[in-house]
Design a binder for these strands. Structure first.
Lengths: 134, 134
DNA sequence: CTTGACCCCGTAGTTGCTACAGGGTTTAGC
DNA sequence: GCTAAACCCTGTAGCAACTACGGGGTCAAG
């Protein structure tokens, strides 16, 4: 057996689902690796690093296209990071908006939960949906 | 012109996108309405109420299947609302978990935003993704 | 009588995976 | 040497919940 990792091993090392690794390759996020004689993909440490980079970006909620941009910055480390910072700020705004939305949902759900009416007609939730505001 | 609303009017009244109305009909969430002689859909107030119900449910973050269940309770108002309350509580848990996830993202993004390095190599975000934890 | 705004249907695209189906290969144990 | 499990391959279809076509028919105003 030659050097490097199989896709399964890479999946373990990076914490990215094996099918997802192939998916990233298909969409051009992860470069296609070399192949062993039997056709199996052979990855090296650089690939593992890149994949962990992608995973961390996803965990921070960045979209695939944002990560593609960030990877280009990794590949051209001389460029200023203004673009990365723009992505971060704009994503931060999105995240904060989503938090606000969800908090409003949560408050409303708390208000509506715990109903024990024995007829749906007078259920707090059903009433709110049926005759609610707007 | 007979009575009732066209799909476009219903869309305005309910605040639901016109294409989405047809989609709800296709998946059986909104009953198929009567048709006028020209084949156009004709809605009544009951349909408008039902659609607003669906919209409010979606705004609270309920999934389509949950709303399907809630609509059945509307149609059988004698049943106790235990099931609705179960849906509410379980959905509330999901929402709270999502809020927690997003807050963790937000904190991290705030930490990483505002970088003004003139080389991506030393960009706070890029570094965090490249050499971060895990 | 034409122009624009509306309606119809069916299908494909979106995001980011995940899950097959239907194969081939390798490895560990006997 | 053989078999069974565990791995790998490709390509395609499914998920949620829409949204956006494409290619047509209809209707109301000027």
């Amino acid at each position: 057996m030659s050097q490097g990792y199989t896709i399964g091993r890479l999946s373990q090392l990076s914490g990215v689902n094996l099918e997802t690794v192939r998916y990233y390759e298909r969409i051009g996020l992860l470069p296609a690796p070399q192949r062993a004689d039997n056709g199996y993909r052979r990855y090296n440490d650089a690939a593992a690093r890149r994949l962990r980079f992608i995973r961390r970006g996803r965990e921070l909620g960045f979209g695939i296209e944002a990560i593609r941009t960030l990877l280009q910055l990794v590949d051209h480390p001389q460029q200023p990071c203004h673009e990365a910072d723009q992505l971060t700020r704009s994503h931060l705004e999105d995240v904060e908006a989503k938090i606000a939305d969800l908090q409003a949902m949560r408050d409303e759900l708390i208000r509506l939960a715990g109903c024990q009416s024995d007829s749906a007609e007078h259920c707090r939730l059903i009433e709110a949906l049926d005759q609610g505001p707007d």
